[in-house]
Amino acid sequence: MTNLSAELRQYLIITASYWTFTLTDGALRMLVLLYFHQLGYEPLQIALLFIFYEFFGVVTNLVGGWLGARQA
């Protein structure tokens, strides 16, 4: 029982961290987009700001997807 509640506590910490992170992830996307638009950046320049962000998504999905499939 104490073991379970310790696990639950760990789970809650991870979930709360992930939620906070995801909240800032979404907020940062809008902040960068709208702020640099406000500064007068062209749409293509704004798109370029995000290419490394998206590129690493491709890389980690390629590597991490393989990992996920192996563990399943």
């Binding site: 909240l23 709208l34 406000q38």
Partner: peptide, 14 residues
């Protein structure tokens, strides 16, 4: 849901 809330938060914070 949280990412969406983040979009709103971002626009509002700005």
């Amino acid at each position: 849901a949280l990412k969406g809330a983040g979009f709103f938060l971002g626009g509002t914070l700005l």
